[in-house]
Design a protein around this nucleic acid. Structure first.
Length: 936
RNA sequence: GGGUGUUUAGCUCAGUUGGGAGAGCGACGGCCUUACAAGCCGUAGGUCGCAGGUUCGAGCCCUGCAACACCCA
């Protein structure tokens, strides 16, 4: 591949990933200490979205870095069968063909799901490759593959045998649309506008309230559930109703006699202070019912229509239809006190969006307390560390109040519960039917029927770290890579996944699943809003990589909308924001953007303007390499004696700090600091200064061949080091360039992936060279500043005068050639201390207390002659005087403060004195120059 | 109602033990300087959410308040 023109991501990315994968570069290698990350398994129903892309960027940077530091690094990958999601997706597709799952039967349906998985379910794995993720595909797993399923069953049986899994009739969250139970975590609570109905329940036996009423008023947001009421509750200390406790009310429309009970749970201030109690359809009421021995009446069928426990008039009605009918009937009976608008919390299923119904059914539960305790301790003891730390609070809060986990789902796709029932309904658990039979002591002719339910998808993902490494077998992989090093994930699944992994892994391996958890933020749109299909503000990472036209983007965002009326708004906004579509930025630019924006503990607002800057950065690196390769055409160019100058020694020396920052930032998961350090060094040190500094030497190579050779070597060595330093962030471009650069150094390595990550001591420290180049940069910057402010064309050579202390004149001696070239200086002269300069434009540099070569003030003067506008120069000087005087006033008042001088550390006081003196000198010089101007 | 986080330049965000407020983008001015106009050089712009407190000294520590975001109920 030739290195010319501009950076073209499509051209370099194509094929490179396949080469890596085919060559086996992603597999763990070497004999170093193990390093392992397990991928948060994407659902087989997923398409790669921007959150995956972000997460993969961070994980891949970690993997590539640790691989380069010599660790035997395994990135374990795989996918999740996504129980409910997948069943929904496949059911929907079948429905499009007019097929219901019942038509196919259980096995027929499951076969269709597997078929769908074979054809479509692998898309996500292919898309992940576009991100450059260096995962070990040969070890790809699936939560329903044979081995993993064996682990799931093993865990179930062992927990059951220990009494940690039980079956029971309990009130659970019931999704009437999917017709399955779901866990607490799968319920989203939304605030929704509703109403509060105040109903009158007549008192029985002529009882009266303290105020003399013959009825109680109860308020409810769910009128239809009154058919299941079995009590009315008041607060035990409520004088209004105290005398009624133990008496009865008559449940309207039903005619049932229900007791008035007293319970602390009742809020006296809410409504009338009376509460209807429906133990069959409300979690709080259920608890009250249990306390008071109340009857539980279930009025709903599985689809939330009313069942035979409801009066005949309401049977088979949908719950919302029944609500209207009941309110109407109560109105006609004159039993509605009032109706008011009320904002209420409505529970909805996170997959179906259906209103969830508390419903009494037989389900399987994990007794969680015994598992939670060690899991809490592991984090308390620091065996698992959250980064950033604050998420530990979230973890603790949830774990300390955790409730038993409902793990059975009334669905077909998933791990079927390994339990069998005999004819008397007794349950027998075993790894297989045969084992269940043996354990029960049944002969083969005893009829057994397997439980119809499947397990919550998170039950299996909880086993991910050890299940993928071969458990329950004692595999070498398990011994080598477990516990894994770090889990990289979003805060949205700390409860769903992280906490449950910790519990299950501790239980079954006696080890933590991972030593650290890096919690990253969520990717949002440029305004900080959540990306969603409904909002139509989503960005597909592949569109950012490959580019997309405006029309295609609009089409994509408005297709298959659940709320088609939004389409117009979305189209208008999309056309406004992306009038020219999205250009192809490439994977590297996207990854660099993610890293740079990955500051800790906050979400990131993804703005395409940022990515443009990082695409430009890639182009910068590309062109810097072109420059180097243009001067080093073959290894022969480097042969022979070389004599490194200050600039060569300076840039080598500077890499030490960069590399040190890289190591420290990665250890802290500060990808932003790492990326910024790389950006800053490559652009503003290597390109802006070092390459410019080599030009005077390279363009006059014949005059000083040893110096030119040293420059070439340094250009090449430092570039190669930078490519390795940047590789974990931008793998494609660094590999491509490295393939061209490294051979010139004599490297025979096949890939940059397996080169050592630079160490801080790879290049020699050189304080003298650093001082020299910092001096040079300060003077050049001063001259450019004068040029810029006084509008002296860059092409116009100027004459330069310098005045200052003796060390400064020595720096001039060492750097004069470079100075002339970089500042476009014609003649330069160092004035004696007493020498009065001719008309000049002046700037003072240095005096910065660094203790280096610039620690004494230096006057940088450009001779004015006809170049300079005197008024403009006067204004410049005045501005400098003003600024210095403000600083002087501040240091002056500090030094005048006795407390400061007495109590501040001596070094701080000395620094302040030093600064005070410098400013006084500077102001004096500036004013002197101003008065000279006035005299002219 | 309980909890966590955020609030710094027009925008997006850094700011590591308390010691002279930074970057990128955007804006403005000047440059087609032989790696790069996806570039180069320069300039402007901030009462660090508000009010107190601790301290010689606070963007940073403490208290209170406000706004926003998220988690739990």
């Amino acid at each position: 591949m030739s290195i010319d023109g501009s950076f073209d991501p499509a051209a370099i990315e194509a094929g490179l990933y396949d080469d890596w994968e085919r060559s086996g570069h992603f597999a763990p290698g070497g004999n170093g200490r193990a390093y392992c990350i397990v991928i948060p398994p994407p659902n087989i129903t997923d398409r790669l979205h921007i959150g995956h892309a972000f997460q993969h960027t961070l994980m891949d940077a970690l993997m590539r870095y640790h691989r380069m530091t010599g660790r035997r690094a395994l990135w374990q990958t795989g996918t999740d069968h996504a129980q409910i999601s997948t069943q929904m997706v496949v059911e929907r597709r079948l429905l499009e063909q007019g097929i219901k799952r019942e038509d196919l039967g259980r096995q027929g349906f499951i076969d269709r799901v597997w078929e769908w998985k074979r054809t479509t379910g692998g898309n996500i794995s292919r898309q992940i490759r576009r991100m450059g993720s260096s995962v070990d595909w040969r070890r790809e797993r699936f939560t329903m593959d044979e081995g993993f399923s064996r682990a799931v069953i093993e865990v179930f049986v062992r927990l059951y045998d220990e009494g940690l899994i039980y079956r029971g009739k309990r009130l659970v969250n019931w999704d009437p649309v999917l017709q399955t139970s779901i866990s607490d975590l799968e319920v989203d609570n939304h605030e929704e506008a509703g109403q509060l109905w105040h109903f009158r329940y007549p008192l029985a036996d002529g009882a009266r309230t303290q105020a003399g009423a013959d009825h109680l008023v109860v308020a409810t947001t769910r009128p239809e559930t009154m058919l299941g009421d079995t009590a009315v509750a008041v607060h035990p200390d409520d004088e209004r109703y105290r005398s009624l406790v133990g008496k009865s009310a008559i449940l309207p429309l039903v005619g049932r006699r229900i007791p008035v009970i007293a319970d602390d749970y009742v809020d006296r201030a809410f409504g009338s202070g009376c509460v209807k109690i429906t133990p069959g359809h409300d979690f709080n009421d259920h608890a009250i019912g249990a306390r008071h021995g109340l009857e539980t009446v279930n009025i709903f069928a599985a689809d939330a229509t009313l069942n035979d426990n409801a009066p005949a008039a309401y049977r088979d009605l949908d719950r919302f239809v029944a609500r209207e009918r009941i309110v109407a009937d109560m109105e006609s009976a004159g039993l509605v006190e009032r109706i008011e608008a009320h904002t209420m919390t409505v529970p909805r299923g996170d997959r179906s969006d259906a209103v969830i119904e508390p419903w009494l059914t037989d389900q399987w539960f994990v007794k969680i307390q015994p598992l939670a305790e060690p899991a809490i301790k592991a984090v308390e003891d620091g065996d698992i560390e959250f980064v950033p730390r604050q998420y530990e609070n979230m973890y603790f809060a949830w774990m300390r109040e955790i409730e038993d986990w409902c793990i059975s789902r009334q669905q077909w796709w998933g791990h079927r519960i390994p339990a069998w029932y005999d004819e008397s309904g007794d349950v027998h658990v075993g790894r297989t039917e045969a084992e269940a039979r043996t354990r029960a002591g049944f002969d083969d002719d005893v009829p057994l029927a397997q439980d119809e339910d499947v397990l919550d998808t998170w039950f299996s993902s909880a086993l991910w770290t050890f299940g993928t490494l071969g458990w329950p077998e004692r595999t070498p992989e398990l011994a080598t890579y477990h516990p894994t090093d770090v889990l990289v994930t979003g805060y949205d699944i700390i409860f769903f996944w992280v906490a449950r992994m910790v519990m299950m892994t501790l239980k079954f391996t006696g080890e933590v699943p991972f030593k650290q958890v890096h919690i990253h933020g969520m990717v949002r749109d440029a305004e900080g809003a959540k990306m969603s299909k409904t909002r139509g503000n989503g960005l597909d990472p592949l569109d950012i990589i490959d580019g997309i036209s405006t029309d295609a983007l609009v089409a994509k965002r408005t297709a298959n909308m659940t709320q088609p009326r939004m389409a117009e708004t979305i189209e208008a906004r999309t056309r406004r924001e992306y009038p020219n579509g999205i250009p192809p930025y490439g994977t590297d630019a996207l990854r660099f953007t993610f890293c740079a924006m990955a500051s800790q503990g906050r979400d990131l607002a993804f703005d395409l303007k940022r990515i443009e800057g990082y695409r430009n950065f890639c182009n910068k690196l590309w062109n810097a390499t072109r420059f180097v390769l243009g001067h080093v055409k073959s290894a022969a160019d480097l042969e022979g004696p070389a004599n490194a100058g200050p600039s060569d020694r300076w840039i080598r020396s500077k890499t030490r700090h960069l590399v040190d920052t890289a190591h420290r930032s990665i250890a802290d998961y500060r990808f932003d600091l790492y990326a910024n350090a790389v950006y800053e060094f490559i652009w503003h040190e290597y390109c802006d200064w070092y390459i410019e500094l080599t030009k005077p030497v390279l363009f006059e190579a014949d005059a000083r061949p040893e110096a030119a050779r040293a420059a070439k070597r340094t250009l090449l060595d430092v570039l190669e080091l930078l490519l390795r330093t940047a590789h974990p962030i931008i793998p494609f471009i660094t590999e491509t360039l490295w393939q061209r650069v490294a051979p010139l150094q004599g490297s025979t390595g096949a890939t940059i992936m397996h080169q050592p990550f630079p160490r801080p001591d790879e290049q020699p420290e050189d304080a003298g060279a650093q001082a020299a180049i910092e001096w040079l940069k300060a003077v050049v910057t001063a001259v450019r500043n004068i040029r810029g402010e006084l509008n002296v064309a860059p092409g116009k050579a100027i004459d330069l005068l310098l005045q200052g202390s003796e060390p400064q004149s020595r720096q001039l001696g060492a750097n004069e050639t470079l100075l002339r070239r970089l500042a476009n200086v014609n003649a330069v002269r160092f004035l004696g201390d007493d020498e009065v300069p001719p008309p000049v434009s002046m700037q003072i540099v240095g005096g910065d207390n660094t203790g280096g070569a610039t620690s004494h003030a230096l006057k940088v003067m450009v001779t004015m002659a006809d170049l300079i506008d005197t008024d403009a120069e006067r204004a410049r000087l005045q501005k400098a005087v003003d600024r210095a005087e403000m600083d002087l006033a501040r240091t002056g008042s500090k030094l005048a403060n006795e407390n400061f001088v007495a109590k501040a550390p001596p070094a701080v006081v000395a620094k302040e004195r030093n600064k005070h003196d410098r400013l006084r000198g500077e102001i004096g010089a500036l004013k002197e120059q101003l008065s000279r101007l006035d005299g002219q």
